[in-house]
């Protein structure tokens, strides 16, 4: 920004060293990343989400997500008169460019960011015929694009609609929880870009992670708990009409 040339010359080498260490996978935050020491998930704080679409755009930039498919997206719910069975839901282009303005209207509105739930008992990895999708030892549901047949059975098996067949690669594709970032001490692209802190990457195996305190003190739910998928994306203050 307002750096003088002198300041830059002093600061740059240190920055360069720090940045290179991030790229090399040995940032100060997690020297020698060990898979067995982590169990990743995410916290979505519904009352904080303003539906700006920053997360969707950040995800598409970070992960080269093809147009028309989404690793994460935002839905806007509108529930009127307590009719929980038929909420009106929209997600124009995944909420990528935000949502149309609403003048004062009856009922309640809220935004629900969605992404892969990185289920511990994931129905999608269960059905893969060849072992091309799996849960990593640190709890991330991942696709091996070099091994996937593209049979789409996993897409059918995901109750949340989080998978798609990549139109060019012809293999199943999905959220990797920015595995290339979280293993280097960074947070996911969507969390990095979220302006309100509605999304938080959590490490359930890290005793210092604030998630433990949060789970103890808030009313937290996962999506479609009846599916018993062991979902690890926790929603704070989730309305019962969300599915």
């Amino acid at each position: 920004m307002n750096l003088s040339r002198r300041q830059m010359l002093i600061l740059l080498p240190a920055a360069a060293v720090a940045w290179k260490s991030v790229l090399a996978g040995t940032p100060e935050d997690s020297p020698n990343y060990k898979m067995s020491e982590h169990w990743w998930g995410m916290l979505i704080d519904i009352p904080k989400c303003i539906g700006c679409g920053n997360c969707v755009r950040a995800c598409q930039t970070e992960n080269d997500v093809p147009d028309g498919n989404f690793r994460t997206w935002v839905e806007r719910y509108h529930v009127t008169d307590g009719d929980m069975v038929s909420p009106q839901v929209i997600s124009p282009d995944g909420g990528k460019e935000g949502f149309p303005v609403v003048q004062e209207d009856a009922g309640k509105y809220f935004f629900v960011p969605k992404l892969c739930n990185h289920c511990a008992d994931s129905p999608c990895t269960q059905v893969c015929p060849v072992g091309a999708t799996f849960v990593t030892p640190d709890g991330v549901v991942m696709v091996d694009p070099k091994y996937c047949l593209g049979c789409a059975y996993c897409v059918q098996a995901c109750p949340y609609g989080c998978r798609y067949i990549h139109p060019e690669k012809k293999v199943a594709d999905k959220c990797t929880l920015c595995y290339h970032r979280i293993t280097k001490g960074l947070t996911t692209a969507c969390c990095e870009a979220c302006p309100t802190g509605a999304r938080q990457l959590v490490d359930l195996k890290n005793p210092k992670d604030p998630i433990h305190e949060f789970l103890k003190t808030h009313s937290v739910q996962v999506l479609k708990p009846q599916m018993a998928t062991g979902a690890k994306v926790y929603y704070n203050d989730l309305d019962g009409s969300v599915r």
Partner: peptide, 14 residues
């Protein structure tokens, strides 16, 4: 495959 997925280039510096 885990390492290959983890080798994806970073776009958001943090």
């Amino acid at each position: 495959a885990i390492g290959e997925v983890g080798a994806h280039p970073i776009k958001f510096a943090g």
